[in-house]
Design a protein around this nucleic acid. Structure first.
Lengths: 259, 259
DNA sequence: CGTGAGTTTGATACCCCTCAATAAAGGTGG
DNA sequence: CCACCTTTATTGAGGGGTATCAAACTCACG
């Protein structure tokens, strides 16, 4: 693991850890808000190390002794659990300004792997706890972030409860689209950093079903692919319709236009 | 809504709000720990009201202006969202020592309804926030609780990712069993406070499939019913096997014993 | 004893998983 | 830059599990 202390010199990757979330009590119009003040970021930078991971690297495994929480600066991480039969189930995709490293009784609850190349901060738990107990403002910001993660986990569960593959895929695209919009990214195209297999393991269907559902969305004119990882949403209202279970029933062959 | 201020007189329902969770960094051997000190409970009692709800009462609806967080003292609450087609999807069952009332931009994310008769505390958000910012210890305890809820939401998502109805039901029973054990309740029998329909909406299958799966577990000698809401787990290892997807494949008719 | 909600049981259609093979994309080294 | 290999994605056929619809049944409660 390639690490270096952040306080050694000027740090090219930013000015310390950064976390974002939609507002708790105020209104942020769906946008993400940067929770940490410059002072808090600097304070955390002192106790953190910068870390880099190549695509495919495991950050930690479920059950490992938890010695740190990670803050993602760039790249995508998946949090997952491995089943007895070797299959994986993905609990969450983590993006920049996210916190990762959920702990229970001193051990990581999930495993984590870099989906793309990743840079971030590793914050030691011991130092973090003392820092938290000393700074109620920082603590409150962490509470906001945890509420955000809880809402996302519930949204994920909501998605998984859907019974139709196409509706699941549509909701997944909506989530990525909303995430990119909340960050202020370009809204012309959705980027899929993860494989079909990852998507399937996240939304609870086989990777083949992911492909078929995407194809179904294409043939209905809801989306269009530039390549396998770049989708354009042609109609957000149509996508919304596909996501809401009702209009989900696959068209019977005779109902299709040509093709 | 039948409410009364807790500081009017001696309060029969307890000594103020109480929240519980499995330990974050220490070890609690799977048991739930009471997070709040007597002082913190007393402090919160001052700003809270005692509330009671009859079975079936709606505590709040998704999108409502959020004016308070609830702490359950007795009974069971379900947190759910209603779909456009009228169906419900349950995000969580909440039990005593739980916190409920997740907020986003000032509005409740889910609806909440009493599954049984419920008593609890209602804590106004404004007073709570000022209290939190003043008391780092209390804030830290809330962080522990939120981590607990996050883990539970992830467990729920994990359950929902399972493709076999019987495995889902087995996992659900394990969760209820583990919950009762973590509270120190009797471990001889699992009580199901919610309807088959509620279970189905929580684990993502139809209510008929819930019944059929339970029946399958009975016919395999994994569980036994005293009545429709009271189950005895005959073999926890068998139940574990059913929950882990592999041994989930339904027995073919000719494989069955008589019946 | 009647009523209604909750639960069980049954039959059928259909969506998705599984297995298998092909095709495309990405990466590496010559 | 192309050949080669590995990974990822697409496409196809078949069987199985669950949703759905419908009806009988149980139980709590008035």
């Amino acid at each position: 693991m390639n690490t270096s202390r952040t306080n050694d010199s000027d740090d090219p990757s930013g000015h310390g850890p950064s976390i974002g979330a939609t507002a708790l009590w105020g209104s942020s119009q769906g946008k993400r808000v940067h929770l940490l003040t410059p002072e808090e970021r600097a304070e955390l930078a002192v106790i953190s190390s910068v870390v880099r991971f190549k695509k495919g690297t495991v950050l930690y495994r479920e059950g490992d002794h938890a010695n740190g929480v990670f803050n993602i600066v760039s790249g995508v991480v998946k949090s997952y659990r491995t089943l007895s039969d070797g299959n994986e189930r993905i609990a969450a995709f983590l993006f920049p300004d996210d916190l990762i490293g959920l702990v229970e009784e001193g051990r990581y609850v999930n495993s984590a792997k870099a989906v793309t190349a990743v840079t971030g901060y590793k914050i030691p738990v011991a130092a973090l706890e003392t820092r938290l107990r000393r700074d109620p403002g920082l603590e409150f910001h962490v509470i906001c972030k945890l509420c955000h993660e809880l809402r996302e986990a519930q949204r994920h569960a909501f998605l998984l409860g859907t019974r139709h593959a196409t509706a699941k895929v549509a909701m997944f695209l909506q989530m990525l689209d909303a995430y990119q919009a909340a960050r202020g990214d370009s809204t012309t195209e959705v980027y899929l950093p993860m494989s079909r297999s990852d998507i399937g393991e996240y939304i609870g269907i086989s990777l083949e079903a992911v492909g078929r559902s995407l194809k179904a969305l294409v043939s209905r004119g809801v989306i269009a692919f530039r390549n396998s990882r770049h989708v354009k949403i042609i109609s957000r209202s149509l996508l919304e319709g596909m996501a809401s279970e009702a209009g989900t029933r696959q068209l019977r062959p005779h109902d299709w236009g040509k093709d």
